[in-house]
């Protein structure tokens, strides 16, 4: 829909439109599933949330007491896991469309393994950090590190809730068609969280 045409429409004039030979009143409401639209808006909200944290990070970085923090090598491995999770879910949303139940089950399972692997990996990074004496309040860079990774992990766990509902239905024998939408939404969400993670990772390395 062209926004310029939309905003210059003259609503006091009746403009019935011809669709398939019939004159009907159309609403211009798109037939994209509402869940998809809501997810896009939600990703916008989450994007703003992390964006504001990034802004705060940069401003805080410029202050006198900022000290760089170590970058645990394990984060690279975790990134790989999340990347694989994202790829797997994309592949799953592809096989769901082809209706291959067996592959869908494998895809959902693998996706979950990679994602849980990522979350546990993050927790183990936290443990390493605290073991080395870098606590939440030790220095501002650490504070941001814990808050950003924690919030990011919480968002991933939220996504896993949708994943669980879809998986339960597939395991209970539902046709792949039923979970097509949820799997597609999961894939989009995972890609988005991968991007957010890459941004967070870049930021942490930039100290």
């Amino acid at each position: 829909m062209n926004p310029f045409r939309l905003l210059t429409e003259k609503p006091w004039l009746s403009t019935p439109q011809t669709v398939g030979g019939m004159t009907v009143e159309v609403s211009q409401a798109s037939l994209v599933p509402p869940q998809k639209v809501a997810l896009r808006v939600f990703l916008g909200v989450v994007g703003v949330l992390f964006g504001l944290f990034f802004t705060a990070y940069f401003i805080r970085m410029g202050l006198a007491d900022w000290r760089p923090m170590p970058e645990p090598q394990q984060l690279w491995f975790n990134t790989l896991l999340l990347f694989l999770g994202s790829i797997t879910l994309q592949w799953t949303s592809h096989v769901v469309r082809r209706g291959e139940t067996g592959l869908v089950k494998i895809g959902l399972l693998l996706g979950a393994i990679f994602t849980f692997g990522f979350v546990f990996g993050q927790v183990s990074v936290w443990q390493q950090m605290t073991a080395e004496g870098y606590y939440l309040s030790s220095n501002p860079a650490n504070s941001f590190f814990y808050v950003l990774t924690g919030l990011h992990a919480l968002h991933i766990l939220g996504g896993l809730w949708v994943w669980t509902r879809a998986s339960v239905r597939v395991m209970a024998g539902a046709k792949p068609e039923v979970v097509r939408l949820s799997v597609g939404l999961c894939a989009t969400y995972w890609h988005f969280l991968l991007l957010v993670w890459l941004a967070v990772f870049a930021l942490i390395s930039y100290t």
Binding site: E25, V26, P34, A38
Partner: peptide, 24 residues
């Protein structure tokens, strides 16, 4: 609010009846 807000936006964008264009 975020739960409600996602609802309001999606409803306005997608749940309008026949003939209810945005500029109506």
């Amino acid at each position: 609010f975020t739960m409600g807000g996602l609802n309001y936006v999606t409803t306005v964008l997608q749940a309008r009846t026949h003939g209810m264009t945005l500029m109506r």
